[in-house]
């Protein structure tokens, strides 16, 4: 049987999201390993401009319709289902992102196909595809076999090189027939990022705090350090949800992607959805009480210890040095 792979291309506002190229790259590699074909599907409004960037696929399925802008996951699942059924697609790859959230479970329910999420590696072993998933905040990995080479996989952003999915070549474009699709759309409008007092993506130094900071009063420890080190304070999700810092300071999946010269992670465990936003920083230094914290797998330097004790002393020493 001619196995084929379908990639749901993600785009936010006017750009293709990097995850799309990551998926195209790994999709191409897997398709080539069993002499299969690679297809992309692009849905939304004014999307034809994206097509020249998707030349690594063998064909592109397209539906350009304003009703599809941020359409519901049911609608996207219905459209993908129609492509899978017509083209006999074996494996569908989606982004493990907030944008595509819901498409995988709904498609899996509709087609009774296995759905494997939060995948960080996909490999072919003989006639099988083995997917490695991240579980429990990245502390545990699991290998799952996709029986019969059929299923839906969602990929954790940052797992694969995006360059491998970039090629500009003209490939056949197939218009999707929407006549049988009941389009449901609840989207009203975009809400632009709040203009924060600082843009953390432009800072050279970020002192980033996580759950280990324990309470809002302790934020002053990070701020005092910034007083001597320069830079700005950023945070992982739990700190933002507590309302201790504004959304503009959030690093990770829903927040910003940052690449400072120094990313100093204080009491951040390093869950995959946080790592996604900071792993490309020049130098990552982490302090955490938990020796098994996944942050130590991405940090360049690590300290297993109590930040509440270390940070104030560090600030004092730096002040003394500066005179």
């Amino acid at each position: 049987m001619n196995n084929s792979i379908l990639i749901l291309i993600e785009h936010l506002k006017d750009a293709i999201a990097d995850i799309s190229f990551e998926m195209l790259g790994i999709g191409r590699k897997i398709a080539d390993s069993f002499n299969g074909s690679l297809h992309a599907v692009v849905l939304g409004k004014d999307i034809n401009k994206f097509l020249p960037e998707l030349g690594i696929a063998d064909s592109i399925f397209v539906a350009d319709d304003e009703k599809l802008e941020m359409a519901s996951p049911e609608t996207i699942a219905d459209i993908i289902k129609s492509i899978i059924e017509i083209k006999g697609i074996s494996i569908t790859i989606l982004g493990g992102t907030n944008t595509a959230a819901g498409v995988g479970p709904i498609l899996s329910s509709k087609l009774k196909l296995p759905y494997l999420n939060f995948c960080k590696n996909i490999r072919v072993e003989g006639d099988n595809i083995i997917v490695t998933n991240q579980l429990f905040g990245g502390k545990i990995l699991s290998d799952v076999k996709l029986d019969g080479m059929k299923g839906i996989i969602s990929v954790n952003p940052g797992s694969f090189p995006s360059d491998a999915g970039k090629a500009s070549k003209v490939v056949p474009v197939v218009e999707i027939d929407l006549s049988q699709i009941k389009i449901k759309n609840y989207f009203k409008k975009y809400i632009e990022p709040e203009a924060g007092d600082v843009d953390i993506t432009k800072e050279n130094v970020l002192v980033s705090v996580g759950r280990g900071i324990e309470n809002a009063d302790n934020l002053s420890l990070a701020e005092d350090l910034i007083g001597v080190l320069g830079g700005a304070i950023s945070a992982s999700r739990p700190v933002i949800d507590q309302g201790w810092l504004p959304l503009s300071r959030q690093v990770g999946k829903s927040g910003m992607t940052v690449k400072p010269k120094l990313y100093f992670a204080l009491g951040i465990s390093g869950a995959p959805e946080h790592v996604e936003g900071m792993k490309d920083s020049d130098c990552i230094v982490a302090i955490n009480k938990d020796p098994a914290a996944p942050i130590f797998n991405v940090a360049h330097y690590g300290v297993c210890g109590d930040l509440l004790e270390i940070v104030p002393s560090l600030t004092e020493k730096l002040k003394a040095k500066k005179g």
Binding site: L116, G138, I140, L141, S142, A292, G302, V303
Partner: peptide
């Protein structure tokens, strides 16, 4: 889905761990 195996991420120890007393660290 059936898990074939669970394992801990390789701690190839990307981070160089800084040891010693607080002052040394």
């Amino acid at each position: 889905t059936t898990i074939e195996k669970m394992f801990e991420p390789e701690t190839t120890g990307k981070a160089e761990m800084l040891d010693g007393s607080t002052d040394e660290i």
